[in-house]
Design a protein around this nucleic acid. Structure first.
Lengths: 124, 124
DNA sequence: ACGGTACATCGATGGTCATCAATATCTATG
DNA sequence: CATAGATATTGATGACCATCGATGTACCGT
């Protein structure tokens, strides 16, 4: 059996993520309070690691829109537990979502989440 | 003498910052390598702290486009050395620039730097 | 020159995090 | 059921970092 066969999917537990639209206007335009700054900092923390950026990039640029976790270990040059840890951080940050299909887990980006972060950095 | 008087300006030492345009296409569009990921992660690290986000926000939304360091300590509720430390991190990340005028130091954002980060998060 | 104010630097400390080996859990296959 | 492979979790460790008090440095008004 190959990882590319079609199998019934069971979504991974998705964690509730604070909506940035509720908390944060563009930081160059409107004032943010201490709580909003904490929420926003948590989102950027997920991007503040080279391995996670590579993983996000690998998933986002996968031609099918999703990537098998099994194909992410070798490219980033870290151990399997380390990669699994970083994927969890990205998932908890709402940047990616995972779906278990048989033995394998397929990850895809959550475009709206990246859109929100992009908007926060914008001029208005 | 008031901090708002016009005084001869001497720019703070500006540190050379790696140009993101040279390293990083939109991560949702093109593949990035390990080096690019490190460079990009360093940029996001500067944003991954609530105090720094508040400082950046205070400076960016100042009506004159710049803010005196003396007006940044109280709003973020941290000690003066801590605020000075965070301003240095933001400066080293190329996100803000500082100019010493007499006793005071005035900070302003570097719009192009934030524009670059925004572009990297974009869909294309 | 002196005293005061603004800002930066230093040194110490407690907390957070990236990493990996070992282990556990789940799933498919024989 | 036993085995093998894929992924997640655990526990330990070393590195990094946010924070602050103390101190240093630069500038200004008297």
């Amino acid at each position: 059996m190959s990882k590319n066969d079609v199998i019934a999917a069971s979504p991974l537990l998705e964690l509730p993520v604070l909506d940035l639209a509720d908390c944060c206007a563009p930081i160059r335009r409107e004032t943010i309070d201490a709580e909003g700054a904490v929420t926003l900092a948590e989102a950027f923390k997920a991007l503040a690691d080279p391995v996670r950026l590579q993983l996000l990039n690998l998933i986002a640029t996968a031609d099918t829109g999703e990537a098998c976790a099994c194909d992410l270990v070798e490219p980033v040059g870290k151990s399997q537990p380390t990669v699994s840890h970083h994927l969890k951080v990205l998932r908890e940050a709402g940047l990616i979502s995972g779906e278990k299909r048989g033995t394998w887990v397929w990850y895809s980006v959550v475009p709206s989440r990246l859109d929100e972060l992009q908007r926060v950095l914008g001029r208005r």
